[in-house]
Nucleic acid binder design. Sequence first.
DNA 1: TAGATTGTTAATCGATTAACAATC
DNA 2: TAGATTGTTAATCGATTAACAATC
Lengths: 180, 180
Amino acid sequence: MGITSSQVRQDFFTFGGFGLQGYGYDVELLCREIGNILGLGIMYQMVIIGAGNLGQALAKHTSFEKRGFRVIGIFDVSDRIIGEKISGVEIMHIDSLAEFTTQNHVDIAVVTVPYAYAREVVDKAVGLGIKGIWNFASAELKVPDDVVIENIHLSDSLIVLGYNLKKKGRETDPSAAKDK
Amino acid sequence: MGITSSQVRQDFFTFGGFGLQGYGYDVELLCREIGNILGLGIMYQMVIIGAGNLGQALAKHTSFEKRGFRVIGIFDVSDRIIGEKISGVEIMHIDSLAEFTTQNHVDIAVVTVPYAYAREVVDKAVGLGIKGIWNFASAELKVPDDVVIENIHLSDSLIVLGYNLKKKGRETDPSAAKDK
DNA sequence: TAGATTGTTAATCGATTAACAATC
DNA sequence: TAGATTGTTAATCGATTAACAATC
């Protein structure tokens, strides 16, 4: 992964030593400790807001549950799909989210609504006491200090890829060898 | 977005000045220049490899095309779905990718296959001369120097979110106020 | 001129890397 | 003891921030 041994030791050192000088690491113990630090033992409950292509794809993605992230509800505004089930989880109307949160503990809201609604949806989730936001809308959203947000900006990632492609192409092109 | 004016000026400076001291920036010109640097005028052609939930969701995502990234082919191994069309683009068998690339210019391969096949698929794409990889498999893949790879690690992002939630929870919890 | 704004250099900060002591 | 490996500090590197000169 392109990480130096120095960096590994330095990172472990931040959380206290896990090995024995001159002997090595007990890999099994080390993995367990890192898992504990990352909180991999915890099961988080998620709701997906926005049952479009991406929302449904994430709901069907089975590997999140293995890592401790379970989808317990999907919400949308489109009457056409409300009532349907995705991987055994019902699509409900966004208006019933408030009631849902009183009956179920929700750790994370997955925001897969269009850009224009992201702000509103996040405010609603935060207002209902949800402390984690996994945001797929291409918007930079402000949240209160006690709320954690993690962004997946797909378009940004594509643009970076395109930029690097363009740059790499120029480097290879001898007619533009001078600029780096 | 939490960026200082210093950082904005420093970043612009890297590419040469776009403004006029004491006067300001011509915003329209500036946007155009940044667009040129990022290569937003270019249209890139993409193939999606892996027509599962995520692959299909990305194929249906209309906003990429607006940014200059067009899906021109979808590939999979499942006979059940080959021949189907997603947003007007046909799902083809992965074995026909080689022929496809001789008839169509492909800039980017979007890899949405399971972890176990990612390595193989990327090697194949690179072998066919595709210079850009947009990787959604949770694998750290090595590519040759002239190939650009951009990763979207969804599980990593979720784990970071979970870790920050856990940390924030501890900070709020007065019984564990000491560790930071 | 006075105020405002950008260009450019210098200072600061944080993360990565190197070095070596402390072990087994 | 010799070789190997981790813990911990110091040096290096790069990015962010601050400062101020150069304008309009």
